[in-house]
Design a protein around this nucleic acid. Structure first.
Length: 455
DNA sequence: AGATGTTTATCGGTTC
DNA sequence: GAACCGATAAACATCT
């Protein structure tokens, strides 16, 4: 239950540096006072990359302190992992537009939305964060705690998101740090703690590969990228916990006691280090580890094999390199996005998909025209809508084919909204099930109570 | 010195 | 209950 997500960050003295005071965390009950939109509650869990204290939104008429209405001009302040803005920032704006006709200027500029915007919109979309408790709280107190609740994503998820959002699919450690804390205010505190965990995750998990810098591009730290076969780590579509841990086949082979299926669909036989491949690049070097170690050796791209250092002029080279990686594993370039679970990274990250989910003012108006209630209530209104219009959501809410709607046009629009709403892995699955009559994946986890621990 | 990276250990939660 | 996953801490090494 999202209500179990502990609200943290009360004590930090620097909040105002991040959030302008005009920011208002109006409860759901109050939203109707704001032209029925309540966008000021948006993005309470997420901020935009590059949205720092120097670019707050205090001037926004909608008090959307996190919603980057100035997407375009704020791009200059984007962090190194700025590829995120592609899917995240623009997505946020798209969400705003979808739910708020007054935000049409955004809408016209932003390509689309994605599910992380829904995450930020959780206060509106879902009761998981304890909406019912909101009203009785002092707005100011509530704002701070609510804003800085720990995101229910694992570090592995965060790293994966960051890497996949990156245009180069590679980030340095520092860029990963930046991406995470730019996006999630929670991670602007206790940096030593979570950054240590990030480093540990990078080293410990096979799904992350280290790509050393080329000699001609000195700098601190290597680049990190995703293992080409790690794309469906979250095949259950849940970013809260992987269904399976990604491991290399070879390592599995060395672990005699382990189940052969451990790597399962997450790895292919030949892809672990690429040495068997006829392609010249790249190979992954094994660093021996004890057999008893649950996590096999760290894999490293040899410097001679990886492309020259990226950013910015060698960007294409790295992309090339990544393509080679992907090709090496006999995978499609969009391997990481090759699945379409409603909670999949597809819905969360793919900017391409976002175009299909774009909903502009016209759509909004159409939604209203068809009597689907207040769009700002998101999932909730969608839930009632399903009964009103006879929508039959069988199993995959993002799949249009599951909707038995009279009007195709309406169906498409509904699909867009539902995708937006359901794209967030934060939506409690049981809640979704009740709203949309969706069968919950068998292993789809709840938000773990471990996230309630002190951060 | 500080950042980066590796490794070990432990604990709690989840899944089977 | 075992195995697994994830978070966290910490020691240590290496690099810039």
């Amino acid at each position: 239950m999202l209500s179990a997500v502990k609200m943290e960050g009360h004590e930090h003295s620097d909040w105002n540096a991040y959030y302008g005071e005009p920011e208002c965390y109006t409860s759901v009950g109050n939203m109707t006072q704001h032209t029925g939109l309540g966008m000021n509650s948006m993005s309470t869990y997420m901020s935009m990359p590059g949205m720092t204290s120097t670019s707050n939104m205090s001037g926004s008429p909608m008090n959307m302190s996190y919603v980057n209405t100035g997407v375009n001009h704020s791009m200059a302040g984007m962090s190194p992992g700025s590829g995120a803005m592609h899917g995240m920032g623009a997505g946020m704006a798209g969400m705003s537009a979808a739910l708020n006709p007054n935000m049409s200027p955004i809408n016209t500029q932003s390509p689309s939305m994605n599910a992380l915007s829904s995450y930020s919109n959780m206060s509106v979309m879902s009761p998981m964060y304890g909406q019912s408790n909101i009203r009785s709280r002092d707005p100011k107190t509530y704002r701070r705690s609510y804003t800085h609740a720990k995101p229910p994503y694992s570090y592995i998820s965060l790293i994966t998101m960051a890497l996949q959002q990156s245009t180069t699919k590679m980030l340095t450690l520092n860029e990963l740090y930046q991406w995470i804390q730019d996006l999630f205010p929670f991670y602007r505190q206790n940096q030593q703690r979570w950054q240590n965990s990030i480093r540990h995750s990078l080293s410990f998990n096979d799904c992350f590969l280290k790509v050393p810098r080329s000699p001609d591009k000195p700098g601190k730290g290597s680049f990190w990228t995703l293992h080409p076969d790690s794309g469906n780590m979250f095949e259950n579509g849940c970013y809260l916990r992987r269904q399976k841990r990604f491991r290399c086949e070879k390592d599995l082979g060395r672990e005699t006691g382990k189940k052969a299926s451990e790597g399962g669909s997450n790895s292919s036989p030949e892809s672990c280090n690429g040495n068997e491949s006829p392609h010249p690049t790249p190979s992954v070097k094994d660093v021996k580890r004890p057999l008893s170690d649950p996590k096999p050796r760290q894999q490293v791209m040899s410097p001679a094999e990886h492309a020259p250092s990226p950013i910015p002029q060698t960007h294409h080279l790295l992309s090339q390199h990544h393509s080679v990686l992907v090709h090496e594993a006999h995978l499609k370039p969009e391997h990481h996005y090759s699945f379409n679970h409603p909670f999949s990274i597809n819905n969360l990250m793919s900017s391409e998909q976002q175009h299909h989910h774009k909903m502009d003012l016209k759509t909004y108006e159409q939604m209203m025209q068809y009597g689907y209630g207040s769009p700002m209530t998101g999932a909730l209104s969608m839930g009632s809508m399903s009964t009103k219009t006879g929508i039959d959501v069988a199993s995959t809410p993002t799949d249009t084919s599951y909707y038995q709607v009279n009007s195709d046009r309406v169906r498409v629009e509904i699909n867009a909204v539902m995708t937006s709403v359901l794209g967030s892995s934060l939506l409690e699955s049981s809640r979704i099930s009740s709203l949309f009559n969706v069968q919950r994946p068998q292993t789809y986890p709840e938000v773990s109570s471990q996230y309630t621990r002190e951060g």
